[in-house]
Simulated scan of single mutants.
Amino acid sequence: MIADLLPDAVASAWRRDDTEPVTLFPEEAAAVARAVPKRQREFATVRLCARLALRRLGLPETPLAPGARGEPRWPQGVAGSMTHCAGYRAAALARTGDVLSLGIDAEPAAPLPEGVLDGVSLPGERGHLDALAARTPAVPWDRLLFSAKESVFKTWYPLTRRELDFDEASVAFEPAPDPKDHTDPRDHTDRTDHTGTFTAQLLVPGPVTGGVRRDHFTGRWLVREGLVLTAIVLTR
């Protein structure tokens, strides 16, 4: 599913569960040696996805141990991002000759827990979400905002090596005009895809790439099969 949000230069892979056996490199295994089994399985499956994406780029498999902040350390010449949530794991990678940085995120398509939205949003964003919800209540807009900001951070961090707080970017969504309907007339389950784009305006000085300071990121989003997916790709 994540491939639907990505350009051709980006290779991706995803899995719905952790049933596929994965042998970790020693450096990877050491990173989760003390983690609970659930975390170990997620960690292994998302690295399986990353290896498949590396293969699609024509690159060899390599250890993908986490860095100081938990971010994956990609091979030289590769930009990438990973995500995992209940029922979904994915990785997306590209050569840095094509892509400067990218960020993907997946979340369950359910409202955020009570009280979380105030901590991850700005007042203007909350008004924006209210207006969107009045038009399209089937989309969990608060969860979509959270996911978009996760993708913003994952794109930002490799370029700056600095933290970015939730209140340091303001996100606005633009839904696509006609959602694609997958509903079977014999099935009363809503199978409509909701999709669109978003813009994240950085409220702090953005990264400088190619001699140009970037003050905003643009991305794409999708709600499908019980999931919220977001992606940002900064191409050259």
Rank of each mutant, 00 (worst) to 15 (best):
I2R: 06
A3P: 14
D8Q: 14
V10I: 13
W14A: 15
A30V: 13
A31T: 12
V32I: 15
P37H: 05
Q40D: 06
Q40S: 11
F43D: 01
L48E: 11
L52T: 12
L52S: 07
A53Q: 06
L54W: 00
L57K: 01
L57R: 01
T62R: 07
T62C: 08
P63E: 06
L64F: 02
Q76W: 09
G77H: 05
A79K: 04
A79C: 09
A86W: 13
G87D: 08
T96D: 10
G103R: 05
A110I: 15
G115E: 01
G115H: 03
V116Q: 01
G124E: 11
H128N: 06
L129I: 08
A131G: 07
A134S: 15
T136N: 10
R143F: 02
K149D: 08
K154Q: 07
L164K: 00
A169H: 07
S170V: 15
V171G: 07
V171T: 11
P175H: 06
P177N: 01
D178A: 15
K180C: 14
P185E: 02
D193I: 11
G196L: 09
G206T: 14
P207C: 10
R213W: 05
R213C: 02
W221L: 03
L222V: 12
L222K: 09
E225D: 15
V228E: 07
L229T: 04
L229A: 06
T235G: 14
T235K: 10
